[in-house]
Design a protein around this nucleic acid. Structure first.
Lengths: 416, 416
DNA sequence: CCTCATTAATTGATCGCCGAGACAAACGAA
DNA sequence: TTCGTTTGTCTCGGCGATCAATTAATGAGG
């Protein structure tokens, strides 16, 4: 299942024998990936392919360094013992990097999901012009690629997560307000940092949603809504196993839906946006002596503000808990709309929502129920993300892995 | 592009030569369907297939009665004149039927979209038990199939539109409140009315959205939101060329999103649902002397109520126009949310919204702008549907045609 | 009128892929 | 040791797409 690009089968491209081969290589590789170790004949039965075809396909997958045999399985049963096939993690790796307001993160795994690299550095994107930021990003990528090279891993692709609107076809950031970026050709600029490695660029919330779908708390749930509490609110939607993009990539702008016609003015100029009710800025404002912080300060050091809030709560400040509860209530109200429109099986909460999940989720769930159960809401629940800050870069890794799984021929045949 | 079922290429099914053939037959048939008459060699260049492959594929499509040649084109240019290929409409037909609160409709076309049958009868579904209603439906289908038989057309499939929640895998209506249906196995029950013809069942608003996408005002726009004004509000969403279903088929329940926390109680038990602001019941209530009609009466004869409203306006009743304007304002407010969440290129208005479009759309557009332009809203506009009441059954026809276009081998080879 | 360049469509040979059945290999059971 | 069982490979045939060569149908020009 291709999550980001268009569907190749229906893309109006002629099919030939190579298409069959790709499709069946993908089928076998996916089966090995998802069903764990299995013999050739088991794979034949379970995929529906002929066993001689399996032999041929596995041979090619081995030549591409994607699958390997582990010694004969002493099964104790009658008959010739089988040679179990597993994903060959040692040869191919995937890299996801994320650039955000105050940090750059890189996360790499092999095909099987074993972590090969995980770095995070503080970086003030607003304090640098886009060119400088990209240089820094390229530097982080270069270091990580070098690490992977030392491990003998060939990099299959890089995905860059950016908090903004992306033209995924060209790998260009159309606009990223929080970074101060406008029309930045990220993929082109980073090409030299890792020649011959395909670079994809996508929205950070979308990639985080994908990470939840592929490896997080909602693994395998093809209908989910991901909400991340930052200074504002980010949102990514997976429906029918596909990321929702909309006509221009703006789909899921949940932070700016109007939830309170009598509410206050939002930074976007409109009234009563959800973000003004559940963003970290709202929490800080509600829980803090009047005007101790402007929005600017919250934006600059969100984690510091959050830690301070927890600190004050520990010291007995009576304003913190009610403020968190209020966040939970508004979260429930907004989620009610999303659930009725998208009918997800789960709403995954990330960012600061996840850090306060044990206090936010019960309130949000209660509010959701209070508003009246519908067919959609009573089949859907909240869940806290456990991926932490790496969600977007982890999602980037999955984009690369997905591409390899859906077209194994992108990995060249090694010539020993 | 398969709009309803899962994607065959990624469905975990082995690919073989028949898969190539199907895919390429589909490619050629689609090309002829979309690009109009063209020669074999033009088709070869435009599809990317080899000339000789085209010859073979066209031969098979002819044998299946899907494509035909029209005499040599006197082009006046040098060289051998080409034989233009066109869709052969005369052999294969598609049927969409709709059962609704007060009528049953049937609509049939050939592959090329020429109308072969179009009937609509009044029928009070609530006044009959589901079994009786299905008998009536079967009778309508039987008559239409007989008509098609007289025209020499082989029926490729039937799609049934029902206003309710459908389990599309089994063709069962899980629940249809307005019909009083619950767990009705529609497809199974209708099988005998047309043996050997595949029967699909789907939600009426979804099918109407599909009709707008395939043949209506929004033809070819793969990101659209369809809103139909009935007693309540129906909604169907097409995103990335696919119908949004959600985890249980409840996606797009736009009528019951909360737009006014201070609003009145909705029939669903909740407060401030959009439906209470823009449903036909709301219009009638606002424009009519207090309590002249209960909701029940509006439900029973919606068209009559609407006609009466227009009548009173013509007579100079000053309450009608402000009421319509108020509908427009709330339509704009709700649409703002949908546009920010789905990022469609157009919001298509059907049902009574379409009948009052010239007075509703300007107001809704103004309200949308007043709420503050966003990147999503200023790339999206309103449009009135021109399909009338037949939208759902027309959408059903497109489901069948789509299936034939994406797998021409479903039509048997005729043996003359 | 005849020839030639030009474009359209078909025929025959070849290649790649999957599938069926025969066959070799590696075990447990008797 | 022999037999039955299961695994994996080998060889061949069928099918679909492609390439090169051939046939068909026209307009232009002598």
């Amino acid at each position: 299942m291709d999550l980001t690009g268009p569907d190749r089968r229906s893309a109006g491209v002629p099919a030939d024998q190579a298409t069959i081969r790709r499709s069946n290589l993908s089928l076998v590789l996916r089966h090995v990936s998802e069903s764990g170790p299995c013999s050739r004949s088991a794979a034949a039965i379970e995929t529906g392919l002929n066993k001689t075809t399996i032999t041929s396909l596995v041979g090619e997958l081995q030549a591409r360094g994607l699958v390997k045999e582990i010694g004969p399985q002493r099964a104790g049963s009658v008959g010739r013992p089988s040679l179990a096939l597993v994903l060959d993690g040692s040869r191919v790796g995937a890299l996801g990097v994320e650039v955000n307001v105050d940090y750059i993160a890189a996360f790499a795994t092999d095909l099987a999901g074993r972590v090969l690299a995980d770095r995070r550095i503080s970086f003030d994107a607003m304090g640098h012009d886009p060119g400088r930021s990209l240089d820094k990003l390229a530097q982080v990528i270069g270091k990580t690629v070098a690490d992977l090279g030392r491990l003998g891993v060939a990099l299959a692709g890089i995905t860059v997560a950016v908090p903004g609107l992306i033209d995924t076809a060209t790998g260009t950031v159309v606009i990223a307000p929080n970074l101060g970026w406008h029309q930045v050709p990220v993929a082109d600029r980073l090409r030299s940092a890792a020649p011959d490695v395909p670079i994809t660029v996508d929205n950070d919330a979308n990639l985080a949603a994908l990470a939840e779908y592929r490896s997080g708390i909602a693994m395998g749930t093809p209908n989910l809504v991901y909400l991340t509490g930052e200074v504002g609110v980010g949102c990514g939607i997976i429906s029918g196993g596909r990321l929702l993009n909309g006509a221009d990539g703006f789909a899921g702008e949940a932070g700016h839906i109007m939830v309170d016609p009598a509410g206050e003015r939002c930074g976007c100029g409109r009234i009563g946006c959800w973000e003004t009710k559940v963003g970290l800025a709202a929490l800080v404002r509600m829980a803090t002596p009047d005007h101790a912080y402007g929005v600017g300060q919250v934006v600059r050091d969100p984690e510091e503000r959050l830690a301070e809030m927890e600190q004050r709560r520990a010291e007995g400040d009576p304003r913190v808990d009610p403020a968190i509860a209020e966040i939970g209530r508004w979260l429930g109200r907004g989620a009610a709309m999303l659930i009725n429109l998208f009918n997800p099986r789960v709403v995954v909460l990330g960012g600061y929502f996840a850090q306060l999940a044990d206090r936010i989720i019960p309130v949000a769930q209660t509010e959701l129920n209070r508003l009246g159960m519908t067919a959609a809401t009573n089949r859907c629940g909240f869940a806290a993300s456990d991926l932490g800050f790496g969600a977007a870069s982890r999602g980037g890794v999955h984009v690369v892995i997905e591409r390899v799984l859906s077209d194994p021929t992108t990995i060249p045949i090694r010539t020993p």
